[in-house]
Design a binder for these strands. Structure first.
Lengths: 362, 362
DNA sequence: GTAACGATGGGATACGGTTTCCGCACCGGT
DNA sequence: ACCGGTGCGGAAACCGTATCCCATCGTTAC
């Protein structure tokens, strides 16, 4: 009676319960279930019947302790609400599922403390990789912090993947999946310039955010290429949200109202900018042109539909997961191969209806 | 040398490595780390130093196998890209983090097979609860399927939580967190009716989706209350996406062009509808009024800003997690208490700029 | 001065599986 | 009929941690 545990006990059934009830050994049940060992048809039938009867599932914790187990990847993000996130996550999740992998999600809320806590938590979980999403704030400590993460994870047999931010400096065991951020901004700005715009309001984002830095730089390069002087006074930094777009345009209309186009750092910012222009009685794109960045669904749902830069978010997610899977299968094959550690995906301009050649305003 | 495993081995350090290096027993290390047992200051210092040196983290799998472990909840969703999802997930994730819990995410892609596989996977993980998000397609098998899930999870000490769909029938061990879907639709339709609209194009969503059924019913009730005949010919079903909104309006303009307002099942559908109206040369809201449902950020970013029904998605996520946590702490306290198994949150109309009294069109 | 007691640390065991190593039984060959 | 080979099932070790139980040591009380 008090053998180990009554079979009819509450809680989940163990492999032992199944073995007992099927009248076979624990090992046999394990073999039937994992299927990597020859088993007689008779045995299989008997075991499977009991498994169904008991609605038994193996304990993932015990399994991974013993060596097996389904690999898991962790996705860490600042703000789960961002539209870009959802698409990267979809890519990761889809690719993970394809391989029978699992994915965890954690949000950091821009808090370094919490980020550290999460990376450690994931390390405890024994994840195959930690995927860090989104642009980074390039403060002093940042490089050191990430390098430490990378080495910690690497030492534990895991791996750090940076998605959507520049690669780390030095010899750090991390993979970066990036997109041609600066190139996209360059192309987008060129599009405005070739349409004839010269006075352009630029809303790249937070000055410390790597994403914003790249977008600003791309725009500047385009101006240089066109021989158009770039006026730093036309740049306004701020968060990637609707409100910032609105307020920045409001302020610009007051300070430097001679702009004929807005180069927004994000589609959402562009939406805010468009709203502010309309509130001021200006028409888009007749009076002022607007372009965005990201090409989230919102871009094609606004009126007018937004010309923007397409960023392959979902593809990045897939690529990130594939990088992890390859590395894991390749094993010691390509340790520290310089390539494969930094993957860059292309961007391109999607032309819609928010750009017109400039007209002279009063 | 071949004691058990060289301390300098690759892979993660174990508690044994720490114990050995600190010259203490394994039990002591465990005690220092979990902190639920008196330990001398000296011991604590020695252990912690080694922990830092080795960058040790406990193995979560081993820990939960041994009894402890951080609770985990799984969030299952059809399509991770939906805007509503992100907010519920945020609520769940936030509340989970607050308690030191972890959250897993899985997407089903409307595939029952995959849904089943995921539920089992989560059962293997020993999650504290599985949270199923979003409206359900009410086909025949559905109730049975969910009941089976609920019982399976319950038997394994886990729990099923349904968010944003009606509760299951019968005595099923599941918790439902719902919002007043029908009431919101009633209020929204009333808003249009009291503005004077009589011919309203209704785009509730897929006919089989519980969410759509509720919204349609709410609208019908409002018409009844106002004594306005409800014309079934003005209802067009379809998916909750931009394209459907666009195409439905296009078709309606051809078939029944006398409508003065559109009652969209979703903000996104409303966006598509608005675009189609504009493409047809009609102004919103001057010529045709539009209302949405959900109150996602998009609603306030459109032009004009959308009058819509606010659904407390994030709150629902929080509530769902709290329900799980309470049940887990309460233990055998309130088994099957009828209340607490079905929580309904309120909705309300958010008035913006997309509704005007109707005018007579040609 | 000694006994009882509180405060700590160590050893052993359980958690639920996987896997290696063995042994048994059954098969065919000679 | 005996022997070797093969295929399959069982026992046990181990994965990394938490915890129960016991041993020890220093204290305080009598």
């Amino acid at each position: 009676m008090s053998q180990r545990k009554a079979t009819s006990d509450a809680g989940r059934a163990t492999i032992r319960d199944v073995a007992e009830r099927a009248g076979v050994s624990v090992a046999s049940v394990s073999r039937v279930l994992s299927g990597n060992y020859p088993v007689s048809e008779e045995l299989r039938r008997r075991v499977m019947k009991v498994v169904r009867d008991l609605d038994y599932v193996t304990n993932a914790h015990a399994r991974s302790l013993a060596g097996g187990g389904t690999p898991t990847v962790a996705i860490l993000i600042n703000n789960i609400t961002g539209a870009a996130f959802a698409h990267v996550a979809k890519g990761v999740e889809g690719a993970a599922t394809l391989r029978g992998w699992l994915s965890l999600v954690g949000t950091t809320g821009d808090d370094p403390e919490r980020e550290l806590a999460l990376v450690n938590l994931m390390r405890q979980q024994g994840v195959a990789a930690v995927i860090l999403l989104g642009g980074a704030y390039d403060y002093d400590e940042y490089q050191l912090r990430m390098a430490r993460f990378a080495r910690s994870l690497d030492a534990a047999g895991s791996h750090l993947v940076l998605v959507g931010r520049p690669p780390l400096e030095g010899d750090v065991p991390a993979t970066t999946v990036d997109y041609d951020n600066e190139g996209g901004a360059y192309a987008m700005a060129s599009h405005l310039l070739s349409a004839g715009h010269r006075r352009v309001l630029v809303l790249p984002g937070h000055a410390e955010l790597t994403t914003a830095q790249g977008r600003l730089k791309g725009a500047q390069r385009a101006f240089e290429a066109y021989g158009v002087p770039f006026d730093p006074g036309m740049v306004r930094h701020g968060p990637y949200d609707y409100e910032h777009g609105y307020e920045a345009v409001e302020a610009a209309l007051h300070d430097t109202p001679d702009f004929t186009a807005v180069l927004a750092g994000t589609d959402v910012v562009a939406a805010g900018a468009a709203q502010a222009l309309r509130a001021a009685g200006l028409r888009v794109p007749e009076d002022v042109s607007i372009v965005g960045y990201d090409d989230i669904p919102l871009a094609s749902q606004l009126t007018p539909q937004l010309t923007t830069v397409h960023v392959p978010y979902e593809e990045m997610g897939r690529v990130a997961l594939r990088a992890v899977a390859d590395r894991r299968e390749g094993g010691a094959g390509h340790r520290k191969s310089a390539d494969g550690d930094h993957l860059v995906l292309g961007t391109h301009v999607v032309v819609r209806n928010s750009v017109r050649p400039p007209i002279t305003r009063v």
